[in-house]
Amino acid sequence: MMIKREDVEHVAMLARLELSEADTEKFTRQLNDILQAVDKLKKLDTANVEPTAHAAPMKNVFRPDKARLSWPQEAVLANAPDPVDGFFRVPKIMEG
């Protein structure tokens, strides 16, 4: 699989990243290098290996359904740039 320039531009747009021409060139090259490295793994016989869903060999880590105190509202809003009436205020969501 080859990563094209347009793929990088598309992913950057989805991540809301603004890339310069030079960055786009560089990341296209780097991402292809990574994919080539991963491609080497394809040579291994994995017919009898279960797909890995998680790096740690663990399953079923649960917590009981018990409510505990949350943070005070002031602490929750401490990082909000523009709080109002206990809410996070955000700019216009959708252009008409």
């Binding site: 018990k66 409510a67 949350s70 509202q73 929750v76 206990g86 809410f87």
Partner: peptide, 25 residues
Amino acid sequence: TESKLFCGCSTEFGAEPNTHVCPVC
């Protein structure tokens, strides 16, 4: 449920805004 899916914040309806919130949320 009494608490949220991934943290212990309460699921109660109608509370003051942003009072059932923690760093996980």
